[in-house]
Simulated scan of single mutants.
Amino acid sequence: MTPTSDRRLIWGTALTQFIGWGTLFIPFSLVLQPMEADLGWSRWELTGALTVGLLTSGILGIPVGRWVDRRGGRAPLTYGALLGAAALAAWAAVDSLWVFYLIWIVMGCAHATALWIPAMAVVVALARQPTKAIAGITFITGFTGTVFIPVVAALVEGLGWRGALLALAALQLLPAVIAWAQFRGVPPPTPPTAIAKGDALRLAMRRPAFWGLALCFAAHVFIGVGLGSHLVPLLREHGLPETSVLLIVALHGPTQVAARAMLYFAGNRASMRLVGMFSAPLLVVALLWLAVAPPTFVWLLPFVACWAVADGLMTIVRAAGTAEILGRDGYGAITGALTLIGVLPRTAAPFVLALAWEAAGGYGPVPWLLAAVAALGAAAFVLAARDRGPAPA
């Protein structure tokens, strides 16, 4: 690989992920209410399909990761993108609830094969500077919501939810073309003996670092999904004006992108251990500030700044830090296992926080609960960062 091919890898991977997340994940929340009105299904019935899709994706993480470790990423990234396009087209025609659930099982397969795990496994295997490459990719994909939320909303408004999904299905064909062309002529990897025997994941799971990372990343995804689903009503309950609420939420994206940009320019000079030991406690600080700050826009700015920086950096630590701490051998299977462990926290977070809200009669204890989860995740990352050797045979 050369620096030029690293740039090609960054741009090719970033485009497949930018479009893939924009078409396969973001539309769900934007077509939810139109589907309710059109089909008469309840919100619980609809969101249950999303949960099934997330569970399917998590379960497939390990076998897909092993495939990439042994045979490369061209097939899963290409055919996964095509599968996603087919699922979107089927979704546009759905009129039966049980079929909708089947479609989301297929969509979960597309998520597992076309999105984050195989893409990052390819980058870690091929890039000369994987940390810089991952930072560059996440910098670009950080704008996915900024671009696709208004685009999908406009498509739903102009074409209806079925027409919007058909348009997105056509767009989702582009990542398949990019992935097929990007890895044309690239030979599959020659896996080390441990990978060939399927031992890389087993050896990694013997190390305290694996379980430290698993707990840290599970805490991170619980907080991210929980805040994503409850931050707006939490701020409204505090009595902030609507413009302040929306601006605080909107500041998260640009701030995390700026943090990723700084890490990109730092390149391989940045140790992922040190970045994680900075960003994981910073998330604790952010949530404690949310718990005690007066409910005014100015006083909540430090919260959103610390939260966004920590969130932006931890996304990179999740990908590049796993390679730095656990090694590149068997990276796909290892990250698949880490993702599988995080599936339950990811799917449970909105419900757990809703139960806390209902039990307390308000959002008062929620920031404290999230801060405790963040503190547990930070301690777990310290455990992982201090483990510098493989498990004994």
Rank of each mutant, 00 (worst) to 15 (best):
M1L: 12
T4D: 13
S5A: 14
S5I: 10
R7K: 13
R8C: 12
I19C: 11
G22P: 07
G22H: 08
I26R: 02
L32G: 05
Q33K: 14
A37L: 15
L39V: 09
L39S: 12
S42W: 10
W44D: 14
T56K: 02
G58A: 01
I59S: 05
V68E: 11
R70L: 15
G73W: 10
G80S: 07
L82Y: 06
G84L: 04
A86Y: 02
A86C: 05
A90W: 13
W91N: 01
A92G: 11
W104A: 03
A112D: 04
A112V: 04
T113N: 04
V122D: 08
V124R: 01
L126W: 14
P130E: 06
P130H: 11
A135W: 05
T138P: 04
T138V: 13
T144L: 09
T144W: 07
F148I: 10
V151K: 07
V152C: 06
A153N: 14
L159M: 12
W161T: 07
W161V: 03
L166Y: 09
A169K: 05
Q172D: 12
W180F: 15
R184T: 12
R184F: 08
G185M: 12
P187F: 08
P187S: 08
P187G: 10
P187A: 12
I195Y: 06
A196P: 08
A196T: 13
G198L: 11
D199C: 06
A200V: 08
A200K: 07
R202Y: 10
A204N: 02
W211E: 06
C216Q: 14
C216M: 15
F217G: 02
V221R: 02
I223W: 03
L227A: 07
V232C: 03
P233I: 00
H238G: 13
L240Y: 09
S244E: 15
S244A: 15
V245P: 09
L246I: 11
I248G: 09
V249D: 13
L251M: 15
R260G: 08
Y264L: 15
A270E: 02
L274W: 13
V275C: 12
V275K: 01
V275F: 02
A280S: 14
A291V: 05
A293C: 00
P294Y: 01
T296L: 05
T296G: 07
V298I: 13
V298A: 15
L300F: 03
L300G: 05
L301R: 03
C306G: 02
W307I: 00
A310I: 02
L313C: 11
L313E: 05
M314T: 14
T315P: 00
I316Q: 08
I316Y: 01
R328D: 03
G332A: 05
A333W: 00
I334S: 04
G342N: 08
G342M: 01
V343E: 03
P345I: 02
P345M: 06
A349P: 01
A349I: 05
P350K: 06
A356V: 15
W357F: 15
A359F: 09
A359L: 14
G364D: 06
G364S: 09
A372Y: 04
V373M: 02
A374C: 10
A375D: 07
